[in-house]
Design a binder for these strands. Structure first.
Lengths: 337, 337
DNA sequence: CTCCGATAGCGAAACGTTTCTCTTTATTAT
DNA sequence: ATAATAAAGAGAAACGTTTCGCTATCGGAG
């Protein structure tokens, strides 16, 4: 049906190897180059990627395994990544594992069967077990947003400096005179949760104040989770005067909970949120928040993977890239002094 | 390196064709079946999809082209779709075209090069021009959420009954005594925009009332868009007593605009929103809104594509599936009578 | 116990590239 | 002009499956 390189060879009178060379950037005499180009047009030739993959053992495809497609922080990273990878002719297969380690493992296996050339993963499983099939096949892996300590050295990662981010935010509140600061975290085992908790505690330590345990709440990075935890904080007999919420969805949930309780920000309570996404752009009051560089993350991940993909070295030259965050000052924090 | 079917043949003493038959569901004698299974385990054999694709001309991969990965209505559909397709061993390549027809066309071409077996598209280009390469190759296409009239008959689609949805919402407001109803729509050329406008006008016609032109605003289905248009409506000398907003992001924007203007819902103004997603689940007041069945849409799209993919018929048996919406009654509409 | 139809197994030829080795052609210096 | 050298082209063998057209084997009916 469709034209093949053989047809071009026949049409131009050239050898198969020459045609192949033409497509793979080799040198071909101008006269023949012209000949081939004409034939390609005439025959509407499109190289057969299947055959090419069979020979080269490369699919020009990468797999992306994430916890939730519904999470905007994640999709904003993926958008940038996908854009860059596609420009380099890599297709991106997305697998949403719904924050379920079993599904995550299945997704990795699935992608190995599809013979992706590389893997990008925002891990749900905190052990890193699920990545074994990929590690065994020796394909490059880049983790996003969350490091897995069990795999350090064998793997690349792009993360933000969560400890610093959280420390900055907490310090900002402490400096404004808040001593009772609520903290709404994600799932307890997750990398970012631990780091953000660490930063919070660091800041308290700096100020020589003991944080109250009941102000620190583990949740699950969903809107409902943030909503519920905020409600819980509001139900305490001793209430926080400020709350630091550690991701986008939970921040939205928090705000909804506050609206419902008729607490106004920052008069009744101060808030520092997370992730400058659409929603906050237009919001009033302008929220003070930790701004993660999603675009930079996506770009970094894509470029790191491309780098790994292009080197034929036996040692994969893995690296952990840490990006920094910014504290965006809005007017959702009231100064108590 | 990796084991091949030849190795299995050698190990079991069987012929290549038998091994192949085993993997493709053919009949193999129990004794031999056992033999093969043992060899597969011993050699850790995994079939080479490249070779298989070369022979069968199938990639077991489908392409998905969408306007924005950041749009939650879209991702909620994709999640369901991806899940079902992956269960059927199809990989999903996602291409975000950022609501740019040029990029959309590129995405389709890209996917054709990758030789996807089928295509799912929520079109940005209203002419359908971009799908020509796919149409030419004769692969099945399923449109999501938006129909393209130029392609009817040649293509399948899953949409919701937008006219009815919009009519129901508008009628609900009219019945509550609202005569000045603002309407915030998406991009003017888009299918859903036209249909939702049509429904609004139908309802007005039913009640024999003339709608005011200045209350109908075209926007772009983004949060900022909704925000801006709501501000515009609030700046009118004669203001609407109710507003119907026709997608999720714009509804969020609307609410932000109202909060900023200190208008409370439903006391100062009534609102009907669109798409019951996370955000509204926890919100107060409980928003009255048009509920689209995202899961059903995703499921329908996936199943329709699988159906088309499995038939070898020359005529693709395309169909347009229309799902209905529900009006979810909250308490964001005030009765004026 | 034989024979027959059905069932399972076999070998070889594809699928359409890339790449290795070898030959031919072009280029340059003498 | 000619030899030496470099560059470009040709042919054929792989990559690992599926499938076509046969042959061998099976189980049961006569």
């Amino acid at each position: 049906m469709a034209a093949t390189m053989k047809d071009i060879a026949r049409m131009t009178g050239l050898g198969l190897a020459t045609i192949s060379k033409y497509f793979n950037g080799g040198n071909v005499r101008p006269k023949n180059r012209k000949l081939i180009e004409d034939a390609v047009k005439a025959l509407r030739f499109v190289p057969n990627e299947f055959a090419r993959s069979l020979k080269t053992r490369l699919s020009r495809t990468v797999g992306v395994v994430i916890p939730e497609l519904g999470n905007q922080f994640i999709t904003s990273i993926i958008t940038t990544m996908e854009d860059i990878l596609r420009k380099h002719d890599y297709a991106v297969i997305v697998c949403d594992c719904r924050t379920d380690p079993r599904r995550e493992k299945e997704a990795v296996t699935f992608l190995m069967h599809k013979r992706v050339d590389g893997l990008i993963n925002m891990p749900t499983d905190t052990t890193g077990e699920h990545l074994k099939p990929a590690l065994d096949r020796g394909i490059p892996i880049v983790l996003v947003d969350r490091m897995l300590k069990a795999l350090s050295g064998k793997i690349s990662a792009v993360v933000v400096d969560n400890v610093d981010a959280s420390e900055k935010a907490t310090r900002y509140l402490l400096e404004a005179g808040h001593e009772k600061i609520g903290l709404i975290l994600g799932n307890e085992g997750i990398y970012t949760t631990q780091k953000r908790r660490e930063g919070y505690l660091n800041a308290y330590a700096e100020f020589n104040i003991k944080p109250r345990k009941e102000f620190i709440r583990f949740s699950d990075y969903t809107l409902e989770g943030g909503y519920t935890k905020m409600k819980e904080l509001l139900a305490l007999s001793i209430q926080p005067t400020a709350v630091f919420v550690t991701n986008y969805e939970m921040t939205l949930g928090t705000i909804i909970a506050l609206n419902e309780a008729f607490r106004s920000v920052p008069d009744d309570i101060s808030i520092i949120g997370f992730d400058k996404l659409d929603m906050f752009g237009a919001m009033y009051p302008n929220l003070t928040l930790v701004k993660q560089p999603q675009n930079a993350i996506g770009e970094c991940v894509a470029k790191q993977l491309l780098r790994l993909l292009s080197q034929t070295l036996p040692d994969p030259l893995n690296q952990i890239i840490t990006l920094s965050t910014q504290l965006h000052e809005g007017n959702s924090v009231k100064c108590l002094k």
